[in-house]
């Protein structure tokens, strides 16, 4: 698939610049577009239960967001160190940026040393194929530095900083995501109660997100390089997904992270309990086996996630949905509106 096929026009005014609470809305009062074979419906997120059937299984990401953006100082001056992925024993993947609005690259060479709060940062080597991402060795307690002085990673389209609490979903239980698994953000206790009341099941996986700032640059989408992310599909969730599939009930992923976790646990016949790292890239050339629908936000032009949406619901339906979303003024990004794609 050509890179251009992930492109569409979207005015900048359709980027959510603040959480819905700052716009006078409850989390579950963001808009919801439902795209099926029958067309596109427009409603509010809190009406989600209406579009699901008793027995449908919603799979959510239990990963919680870290305050992963640290102010740092190096040989070339002040910069932001966005910690993407904890590889263990002090080794992380990280994206050094000049600022929220100005990406790298920074003039860095292997062996360069910087200071972030009280953590010494050793630049090890750039990530093969993604030169904006670096392996860094952190000498000091990164989690403590984040707890004390880190901020949630943000990009230029937001009007200001928001507290970490704005970046946690109702399902957040295991800290580790560099960026909020945002598809779960509009869920509130009343929505979950209504889903349960309707007989919709819920199950959880964990996938800790890295940084999302790396759009597809390869001319051929399938050659896009993804960095690995930690994931875990527990035995209970694997059983629930397999049982739903066998009974012909729908499995709906809440977020692209959930699709990636479930597809990573697919052994060709069923979902197995699995734990490890995944950089699986779901695109139309690699069919989706584990889900029948995807509840997600609206993704940027050229975002690699669009290829996953195409794989779940077909490029035609996604492209017509995005044209409709632009016409109807839906809001993009982590604090924006919601989109349910059903096969």
């Amino acid at each position: 698939m050509k890179r251009e096929e992930l492109f569409f026009e979207r005015p900048d005014s359709l980027q959510a610049t603040a959480p819905p609470e700052a716009r006078g809305l409850a989390r579950d009062e963001v808009r919801l577009m439902v795209s099926t074979a029958a067309g596109h419906e427009h409603t509010l997120f809190r009406d989600l239960p209406r579009f699901l059937d008793p027995g449908d299984l919603l799979v959510v990401n239990r990963s919680a967001t870290l305050a992963a953006s640290l102010r740092a100082k190096g040989p070339a001056g002040a910069f932001l160190l966005n910690l993407a992925t904890d590889l263990g024993r002090g080794l992380w993947l990280a994206e050094p940026r000049w600022s929220e609005s100005r990406p790298g690259p920074l003039p860095l060479a292997p062996g360069a040393v910087a200071q972030a709060i009280d953590v010494r940062v050793h630049f090890v080597t750039p990530y093969p194929g993604l030169p904006r991402l670096w392996f860094v060795r952190l000498d000091g307690d990164a989690r403590a530095a984040m707890a004390c002085c880190g901020r949630p990673i943000r990009y230029a389209y937001l009007d200001r900083n928001y507290a970490l609490a704005a970046y946690q979903t109702l399902f957040a239980a295991v800290p580790g995501s560099a960026e909020m698994p945002s598809a779960g953000r509009p869920f509130t206790p009343r929505v979950v109660d209504a889903l349960r009341g309707r007989g919709v099941e819920l199950a959880g996986v964990v996938l800790h997100t890295g940084v999302s700032s790396l759009e597809v640059e390869a001319d051929v989408v399938e050659e896009h390089v993804l960095s690995p992310e930690p994931f875990c599909v527990p035995a209970g969730t694997a059983r629930a997904v397999n049982a739903a599939r066998e009974a012909g009930r729908r499995v709906v992923a809440v977020g692209t992270t959930v699709v990636r976790a479930l597809e990573s646990a697919w052994d060709g016949e069923r979902v197995r309990p699995s734990e490890g790292m995944t950089r699986i890239y779901v695109h139309p050339g690699r069919p989706v086996h584990t889900v029948d629908g995807l509840l997600t936000g609206f993704h940027d032009p050229l975002a690699s996630h669009l290829a996953m949406l195409y794989a779940v619901a077909g490029a035609g339906r996604v492209r017509s949905a995005y044209a409709e979303a632009v016409r109807e003024g839906y809001l993009w990004h982590e604090f924006g509106d919601s989109h349910l794609l059903l096969r």
């Binding site: 590889l87 263990g88 024993r89 080794l91």
Partner: peptide, 9 residues
């Protein structure tokens, strides 16, 4: 390298 980074952690 990504693999070694993960394995050694």
């Amino acid at each position: 390298l990504p693999f070694w980074g993960w394995l050694l952690g």
